[in-house]
């Protein structure tokens, strides 16, 4: 692994290909639940790896995967802020529980759970991911997304409510 990182720092093509091979599936999974469709996730993956190859010279931490993940999350945040600026995030008001398609399987897999996250409105999804999965505080989330702390809390609450309802509909025991 150290050889690959060292190779990437020297901009060696073989090392970059190896690194992509090692982490692409895992990072694509991350990209998927930060977006609402596969195409956006592909774009995120593309931009994320380019940024990693550009900035790998600055990497000096122990946990490489965590560092990579942070880069992908940062890019997702940048895209979110840009979309917000372009007023492309307007689905919250029109969102209803019925917007979520029913999941057919009674036994939910990770894929299905991620699909539920992907179906959340963009802002709810971002807040939920950052709080529940990444472990950020509401104040931090508010700073990152450019929203109020109260909005972050209410978005999280609403996201949980939606996910919970969806899980209940599917009669999944999540105890």
């Amino acid at each position: 692994m150290e050889d690959i990182i060292a190779g990437c720092k020297k901009k060696k093509a073989w090392a970059q290909a190896e690194l992509f091979e090692m982490f692409s599936d895992k990072m694509f999974g991350t990209c998927l639940y930060y977006t609402d469709n596969k195409e956006d996730a592909e774009d995120l993956l593309h931009d994320g790896f380019l940024k990693i190859f550009d900035n790998i010279g600055n990497y000096s931490q122990d946990k490489f995967e965590a560092w990579m993940r942070k880069i992908f999350i940062n890019i997702a945040l940048m895209r979110f802020r840009r979309m917000k600026l372009a007023k492309e995030i307007d689905e919250i008001n029109s969102f209803t529980l019925s917007s979520i398609p029913f999941v057919e399987n009674t036994e939910m897999q990770a894929n299905d759970l991620i699909a539920l996250i992907m179906k959340l409105p963009t802002q709810y999804r971002m807040v939920f991911n950052l709080y529940a999965i990444e472990g950020y505080k509401h104040r931090e989330i508010a700073d990152m997304l450019g929203i109020n702390e109260g909005t972050s809390k209410s978005n999280l609450s609403r996201a949980r409510q939606i996910l919970q309802s969806q899980l209940l509909v599917q009669e999944i025991d999540f105890k």
Partner: peptide
């Protein structure tokens, strides 16, 4: 519990890249 379910799902989650 909801948070844990989704966190656990995300930690292990990976998807085949195009």
């Amino acid at each position: 519990n909801i948070d844990d379910i989704f966190r656990n799902a995300s930690i292990a989650y990976s998807a085949a890249t195009p």
